[in-house]
Computed example of a mutant assay.
Amino acid sequence: MSFNDYTFLDNSTEYPEELKPWKEKLTKILHEMNAYGFERLCQRILRECGFSHVEVTKKSGDGGIDGRGKLKINGVFSIVVAFQCKRYKGSVGAPAIRDFRGALTADVEKAVLITTGTFTQEAKKEANNPAKVQIDLINGEELVDMIISLGIGVKPMTSYEIDEDFFENM
């Protein structure tokens, strides 16, 4: 039986571990990481995206901010960015956005909330409220895509399908 013979209809479908789609496997790994490890991964992603001085706050008593860094834009402007990391299987709601915003200090000019899950519509609306500090959102799918594009903890593999008829007809 080949990979294409399996039908993936829903999460209850059983199939061999070696045939699980790699994005699903990476998402599972992210969900199972310890909280501090996940924060360090987000730190690394932000560094690879061009941030400097990216630091993860202490494990406890971070006041709702998991880390901060500086982003230099076009070699001219530097802005201080705070980030928060949430390993969620479900959705991050508006209260989490409000709590994060409330933890921001006066020196923070931008904020980003990174999750392995998704964001509710209310959370997206709250994050983009024009009357408040804007919070950029990175959901689980975007996070996985960033990890892949930056090549962090993953490596591409080449797979070949063998044309057995070709060899039999030689």
Rank of each mutant, 00 (worst) to 15 (best):
T120Y: 02
T115D: 06
A123T: 06
G75F: 12
V81R: 05
V80N: 12
S60H: 11
T118V: 08
G69V: 06
I65H: 05
T57D: 06
S91I: 00
K72F: 09
A123M: 10
L71R: 02
T115I: 10
F51N: 07
G63W: 05
A106D: 15
G102V: 14
R101G: 05
Q84L: 09
K86C: 06
S52M: 09
Q121T: 07
G75Q: 04
K58R: 14
S52H: 06
F119Q: 00
Q121V: 10
Q84H: 04
K125V: 07
I97R: 07
S52L: 13
K58I: 03
G93L: 01
R44L: 15
N74K: 14
Y88K: 14
E55Q: 11
F51G: 07
A94G: 01
G93Q: 12
G61S: 08
V54A: 10
T115A: 09
V92M: 04
G67L: 10
V76T: 05
K59Y: 01
K58W: 02
F51Q: 07
F77Q: 10
G90A: 08
K70W: 09
K58Y: 01
E109Q: 15
A94V: 00
G67V: 02
A103N: 06
G93P: 00
I65N: 05
G61I: 07
D66N: 09
G75E: 11
S78H: 02
I73L: 15
F100Q: 02
F119R: 03
S60W: 11
F83D: 01
P95W: 12
G67D: 03
S60A: 06
S78T: 04
V112N: 02
D62S: 06
C85S: 14
K110S: 15
A103I: 11
A127K: 02
L71E: 01
D99G: 06
G61M: 07
R68D: 00
